[in-house]
Design a protein around this nucleic acid. Structure first.
Lengths: 357, 357
DNA sequence: TTGTACGCGTTATCAG
DNA sequence: CTGATAACGCGTACAA
């Protein structure tokens, strides 16, 4: 297919072929200014004939420093979970600097809606050409998304989807499908017995993520008509910082169901279940969780955690910025939803997922 | 860390600070031409002070069309396995065109060393600035690698490693570790019984890949002191195109060992085992293989194949080109070996690995 | 409505 | 040994 030795056509070449000036070609390409019908047609014809594609670099070189993007994400200092997305944004930042794009990070405390509002306000006051935001506070976020929509500032969403105001793209997790996958992984090891869905978070009912994961897990068994063999129960632990409390809850659980064969922890805190299993010396109980936090990794190595489901959080941060830039600077058309692969991580392949994008 | 509003320092800025001309700064940066000791020191000092980083785009803009790369890979028309790497190269090709790099593909028949030599000769005769090669014929490859080394043409290796002549980078599979992983996956489902390592290829003793995979698999069980519970046997099928022959071999195997619980197929032909299992209506036998070929995918969906290990072949083709360009054009320093993640693919997450890079 | 000239940051060339 | 200057392809302000 590739034609060797052919020179890449430039705007100037099109201009010559169409007997107009480069300026006119430019006007046709960008639909700006006035162009006579005749000229426009000639130019379009020549463009097709030469199979013109703009030179991204030359374009970017011209517009150096003209694009400013704001990233509004939780401060990783407060929660290791946000470390990876932060790094992803950071990485995209340095890459995009090359293209004349400046990315400024605005960090808020994921336990403090006020700090979110503060940082969001800062962004609104400066003028940015695009915004990447992790809208984890629904109400507070809505207000700003509304505002930015009216101002005509494009934004992309990350981690949490709020479709009300059309984002350029949502980059995040496919929660439901990850639950289905978790079901498969436990069922693969264990054809009968009781599986526990463990929600370990402050605000469980509010967290649509967790609910969707649960639904996916349940549907896996439902669809496969396996209900007779498999018993599924759920446990909610909102005060997970209180160890005694947590242990008491688990003790109760194990008294109530004697044939527990597996746990599915619906967020990154599977290490809490892992600690309990080790503490009580419970063997042969399968454990599937999420995210490559250091505590989880240790338990993965030791074999207490069998699988961690990982949706490349660093890649998510990276893609969030990258796709926004693609839309903004390079005018590419973007799919409205971007899921990264649901990676299955075990101690045998974890090396490839840590510290990589 | 990011200083907002700061302008990115240019060569010109360094020149001014150091009281020299941009030309001199350029000479210092690239170690070319003669520069007085005094001038060199001043420039280096200014560079550090301003924290200079070259502008990739401006650099690439200058050298448009000056870099030509050849990719010497098997023709996907003869084997679906090579489809993905081909696409990866293709994708890199279009991306790199933007940077003024031209990539020409040279395809050979992976069953015909002669075609390899022919294409390689073509490359040697034209003058390319870099070469990506899948050196699947050891002897034939050596000759050309030697030649290119003497000519000073950098090359990177892909799929098969030949360390004799230093490549820029080897991009490929971590065969041993993938075998370890396969062991984990079978063992996770099945704590005792017989596992079969199935080599299905024309030239098994010659194929170091297959041997390494086997070793990894065995070592997984060895290291974990599980020999008493698990029995490992191996089968070699070189004439895999003859169905009757294949079936007879499997029949013999099942007669000899009555408690076979799992198969590990060491290359992309796990569909052959899958077909057999379906044909003989053998249930509850675990099957782990490699690569997302269409036949494998069908069996993955239907549940006959449990897991496919996938090392992003499209990504490998892509990285092969990309890293070579990074070295050649952008003068980045490259790690000599690049493994892509060993992805565990099941019917529940396969959607994210098909048609993506 | 159309054409022209300059600048973006880097590199290569040529004159000093 | 060093400095000035013209490209690279595109966008844009300004002139016609």
């Amino acid at each position: 297919m590739t034609k060797k030795g052919k020179k890449i056509p430039r705007i100037k070449d099109i201009a010559e072929l169409a007997n107009v000036s480069p300026g006119t070609v430019d006007r046709v390409i960008h639909n700006r200014g006035k162009v006579s019908q005749k000229a426009r047609e000639k130019v379009l014809k020549s463009m097709k004939e030469l199979n013109y594609e703009p030179n991204v670099m030359a374009r970017a070189l011209v517009s150096t420093g003209k694009f400013r993007i704001a990233a509004l994400i939780p401060d990783p200092a407060n929660d290791e979970y946000w470390e990876a997305p932060y790094q992803g944004v950071d990485q995209a930042e340095t890459k995009m600097r090359q293209y004349g794009v400046v990315v400024d990070k605005f960090l808020f405390d994921q336990n403090d809606p006020l700090s979110f509002k503060e940082e969001a306000s800062k962004i609104s006051e400066s003028d940015y050409h695009g915004i990447l935001v992790a809208p984890i506070f629904y109400r507070e976020s809505l207000a700003f998304l509304n505002r930015w929509s009216k101002q005509g500032i494009p934004f992309s969403l990350f981690n949490t989807h709020i479709p009300d105001y059309k984002p350029v793209v949502y980059v995040g997790q496919d929660s439901y499908q990850s639950g289905v996958l978790a079901g498969k992984l436990l069922h693969y090891a264990c054809r009968q017995g009781t599986f526990v869905i463990a929600h370990i978070d402050k605000e469980i009912p509010n967290s649509t993520h967790l609910i969707r994961k649960e639904q996916g897990f349940i549907d896996y068994f439902g669809e496969n008509d396996l209900q007779k063999q498999i018993n599924i129960v759920r446990i909610e632990i909102s005060e997970w910082t209180n160890k005694k409390d947590v242990y008491r809850k688990f003790d109760d659980l194990f008294q109530q169901y004697e044939n527990i064969h597996g746990f599915f922890v619906t967020n990154s805190r599977s290490y809490i279940v892992g600690d309990y299993l080790i503490n009580k010396n419970l063997q042969n109980i399968k454990l599937v969780g999420y995210d490559l936090l250091s505590k989880n990794l240790a338990l993965l190595e030791s074999g207490t955690i069998d699988f961690l489901i990982n949706q490349n959080p660093r890649g998510q941060g990276f893609m969030g910025v990258t796709l926004l830039v693609d839309h903004l600077v390079f005018k590419k058309s973007i799919e409205p939803i971007k899921y990264l692969p649901l990676d299955i991580v075990t101690s045998e392949n974890v090396q490839y997922y840590v510290d990589k994008i």
